[in-house]
Measured scan of single mutants.
Amino acid sequence: MAASAHGSVWGPLRLGIPGLCCRRPPLGLYARMRRLPGPEVSGRSVAAASGPGAWGTDHYCLELLRKRDYEGYLCSLLLPAESRSSVFALRAFNVELAQVKDSVSEKTIGLMRMQFWKKTVEDIYCDNPPHQPVAIELWKAVKRHNLTKRWLMKIVDEREKNLDDKAYRNIKELENYAENTQSSLLYLTLEILGIKDLHADHAASHIGKAQGIVTCLRATPYHGSRRKVFLPMDICMLHGVSQEDFLRRNQDKNVRDVIYDIASQAHLHLKHARSFHKTVPVKAFPAFLQTVSLEDFLKKIQRVDFDIFHPSLQQKNTLLPLYLYIQSWRKTY
């Protein structure tokens, strides 16, 4: 089996927390979720979201995140109150960019949308954001926290390059993509939290790379249903696996070995980020709550012996909000 052949990389499970039942964490995340308004986002309300009498641009960002990046939404709820709305805006910006690729039928249209967001970032730093909910909220975040323009532009530029429907040539190319998107998002989150620390940035770099790799793995069944495969070609070739094997949902050992190798790289990034947690300011830990969902996925895929098409991998963990709150309460990542 794939797991038994390579099992030495995987460390002990961390979500089991001995003695936790003896201490009762304060009510927090679930209460916040219940208090949030929840009407559906419609095209009509989106168009009017920044106008008078609408929910408001902040509510639009929150709803977009809740629907399109639920794990990011849950993590954002546990940030300090003064930072929450800015991170909602930042993550909503990322969602807007991420959904361009799947929402257009022609690359030219995707490039036009990316050009809109490039100009939007430029206009935000000229205090002239367009009348668009996410743009307005992002402008507020930039003004409030003096966010670095370079990180925002890196996210747009990398998403634009990724409009080509090509597999990553190697794991390094996937890591570079993750660094310029997910890690950049974390650098900006640290700025919102008021953290300027080399060790925190180092952790953000590795956690962002782990996030990018896990996202690529999780999306494999969806991409396969659209006749697309984006997994690193070098690892596929190493194990003699073709793109057609993934399109046919082949579950042979060599296919699972490909998934094992890729998942192991995410695991190593996560492990390395945690190896120097004592040197990272505690104030930075809330920015890294996504490690909970990353670890949850890596454990699940290990349990199914790296069968990327196993139905259990597509099921939401209903206990994730609780695990996130516990992680926040324990002040760790």
Rank of each mutant, 00 (worst) to 15 (best):
45 S>Q: 15
45 S>A: 08
46 V>Q: 05
47 A>F: 13
47 A>V: 13
49 A>W: 15
50 S>F: 08
50 S>N: 08
50 S>Y: 13
50 S>L: 06
50 S>I: 07
51 G>Q: 12
52 P>N: 12
52 P>D: 11
52 P>I: 14
53 G>C: 07
53 G>P: 15
54 A>C: 13
55 W>C: 14
56 G>M: 15
56 G>D: 08
56 G>Y: 10
58 D>G: 11
58 D>H: 13
59 H>A: 10
62 L>E: 06
64 L>R: 09
65 L>A: 09
65 L>V: 11
66 R>T: 05
66 R>H: 08
67 K>M: 11
70 Y>N: 09
71 E>A: 08
72 G>L: 10
72 G>Q: 12
76 S>M: 06
76 S>C: 12
78 L>P: 10
78 L>V: 10
79 L>E: 02
79 L>S: 13
80 P>A: 09
80 P>I: 02
81 A>N: 14
81 A>V: 15
81 A>S: 14
82 E>D: 11
82 E>R: 15
83 S>G: 14
83 S>D: 09
84 R>M: 10
84 R>Y: 05
86 S>Y: 07
86 S>W: 03
86 S>C: 08
88 F>S: 08
88 F>V: 14
90 L>I: 14
90 L>R: 02
90 L>K: 02
90 L>E: 03
90 L>P: 01
91 R>A: 05
92 A>C: 13
92 A>L: 04
93 F>N: 00
94 N>C: 05
94 N>Q: 07
96 E>T: 10
97 L>N: 03
97 L>E: 00
98 A>S: 14
102 D>P: 09
102 D>F: 07
102 D>I: 06
104 V>W: 12
104 V>N: 11
104 V>M: 14
104 V>Y: 13
105 S>A: 15
106 E>L: 09
111 L>K: 09
112 M>K: 10
113 R>V: 07
113 R>W: 05
114 M>A: 08
115 Q>T: 10
117 W>C: 06
118 K>I: 04
118 K>Q: 10
119 K>P: 02
119 K>I: 03
120 T>D: 02
121 V>H: 03
122 E>D: 15
122 E>A: 15
122 E>P: 02
124 I>L: 09
124 I>K: 01
125 Y>P: 00
126 C>P: 01
127 D>N: 08
127 D>H: 08
128 N>F: 12
128 N>G: 09
128 N>I: 13
128 N>T: 15
129 P>M: 13
129 P>H: 06
131 H>Q: 09
132 Q>D: 08
134 V>L: 13
135 A>T: 05
135 A>W: 01
137 E>A: 15
137 E>P: 04
138 L>C: 03
139 W>E: 03
139 W>N: 06
139 W>R: 04
140 K>R: 13
141 A>T: 15
141 A>I: 04
143 K>V: 11
143 K>Q: 13
143 K>T: 11
143 K>D: 03
143 K>M: 07
144 R>M: 11
144 R>I: 06
145 H>T: 04
145 H>E: 03
145 H>D: 06
146 N>K: 12
147 L>G: 02
152 L>W: 02
152 L>R: 01
155 I>H: 05
155 I>V: 10
156 V>H: 03
156 V>M: 11
157 D>L: 11
157 D>K: 12
159 R>W: 04
159 R>N: 04
160 E>N: 15
160 E>W: 13
161 K>D: 10
161 K>H: 13
161 K>Y: 09
162 N>K: 08
163 L>T: 07
163 L>A: 08
163 L>H: 07
163 L>P: 06
165 D>Y: 07
166 K>R: 09
166 K>M: 10
172 K>R: 12
173 E>V: 04
175 E>V: 07
177 Y>N: 06
177 Y>M: 08
177 Y>E: 06
178 A>K: 00
179 E>D: 08
179 E>W: 00
181 T>C: 12
182 Q>F: 11
183 S>V: 06
184 S>Y: 07
184 S>L: 15
184 S>E: 00
184 S>V: 15
185 L>M: 12
185 L>I: 09
185 L>A: 09
185 L>N: 04
185 L>R: 03
186 L>N: 13
186 L>Y: 11
187 Y>N: 04
187 Y>H: 08
188 L>H: 01
188 L>I: 09
189 T>F: 13
190 L>A: 01
190 L>P: 00
190 L>M: 13
190 L>T: 03
191 E>Q: 15
191 E>Y: 00
192 I>K: 02
193 L>S: 03
193 L>H: 03
194 G>K: 09
196 K>W: 04
197 D>V: 03
197 D>E: 10
198 L>R: 04
199 H>C: 08
200 A>C: 09
200 A>Y: 00
200 A>W: 00
201 D>F: 05
202 H>K: 05
203 A>N: 01
203 A>D: 00
203 A>P: 02
204 A>T: 01
204 A>P: 01
206 H>R: 04
208 G>T: 02
209 K>M: 05
211 Q>A: 14
215 T>E: 04
215 T>P: 00
215 T>M: 12
215 T>I: 07
216 C>Y: 04
216 C>R: 01
216 C>T: 12
216 C>K: 02
217 L>E: 01
217 L>W: 05
218 R>W: 04
219 A>Y: 04
219 A>C: 07
219 A>T: 08
219 A>N: 05
219 A>F: 04
219 A>G: 14
219 A>V: 05
220 T>L: 12
220 T>Q: 10
221 P>R: 14
221 P>Q: 12
222 Y>I: 10
223 H>L: 12
224 G>P: 04
224 G>M: 11
225 S>T: 14
226 R>D: 09
227 R>T: 09
228 K>W: 12
228 K>L: 14
228 K>Q: 11
229 V>C: 13
229 V>I: 15
231 L>H: 03
231 L>P: 03
232 P>N: 00
232 P>V: 01
233 M>P: 02
233 M>L: 10
233 M>Y: 06
235 I>H: 04
236 C>E: 03
236 C>N: 03
238 L>R: 12
238 L>F: 09
239 H>M: 02
239 H>A: 05
241 V>F: 03
241 V>A: 13
243 Q>Y: 06
243 Q>R: 03
244 E>V: 05
244 E>D: 06
246 F>C: 08
247 L>G: 04
247 L>A: 10
248 R>V: 08
249 R>F: 12
249 R>T: 09
252 D>L: 09
253 K>R: 12
253 K>P: 14
255 V>N: 08
256 R>Q: 12
257 D>W: 06
257 D>M: 09
257 D>P: 05
259 I>D: 00
259 I>S: 03
259 I>P: 01
259 I>L: 03
260 Y>I: 05
260 Y>L: 07
260 Y>C: 06
265 Q>W: 11
265 Q>H: 12
267 H>W: 14
267 H>M: 10
268 L>K: 08
268 L>G: 08
268 L>Q: 11
269 H>Q: 08
269 H>N: 05
270 L>T: 01
270 L>C: 03
271 K>A: 15
271 K>H: 11
272 H>S: 10
272 H>K: 14
272 H>D: 06
273 A>W: 01
274 R>Y: 04
275 S>Y: 06
276 F>C: 06
277 H>V: 10
277 H>T: 11
278 K>W: 09
279 T>A: 11
279 T>Y: 09
279 T>G: 12
280 V>Q: 00
281 P>T: 06
282 V>R: 08
283 K>P: 12
283 K>V: 11
284 A>K: 02
287 A>T: 05
287 A>H: 01
288 F>E: 01
288 F>T: 02
288 F>M: 04
289 L>C: 07
289 L>E: 00
289 L>H: 06
290 Q>A: 13
290 Q>W: 10
290 Q>I: 07
291 T>Q: 02
291 T>N: 04
291 T>L: 05
294 L>V: 10
295 E>R: 07
295 E>N: 12
295 E>K: 05
296 D>K: 07
296 D>W: 09
297 F>K: 02
297 F>N: 06
298 L>F: 09
299 K>D: 12
299 K>T: 12
299 K>H: 13
300 K>T: 09
300 K>A: 13
300 K>E: 14
301 I>T: 06
302 Q>P: 01
302 Q>K: 06
302 Q>I: 06
306 F>W: 10
306 F>T: 00
307 D>P: 00
307 D>R: 03
308 I>Y: 00
308 I>M: 06
308 I>N: 00
310 H>C: 06
311 P>W: 08
311 P>F: 06
312 S>P: 00
313 L>S: 02
313 L>T: 05
314 Q>H: 09
315 Q>C: 14
315 Q>W: 11
318 T>P: 12
320 L>M: 10
321 P>L: 05
321 P>Q: 03
321 P>Y: 03
322 L>T: 08
322 L>Q: 03
323 Y>F: 15
327 Q>M: 07
330 R>M: 14
330 R>T: 11
331 K>M: 12
332 T>W: 11
333 Y>L: 06
333 Y>P: 01
333 Y>S: 00
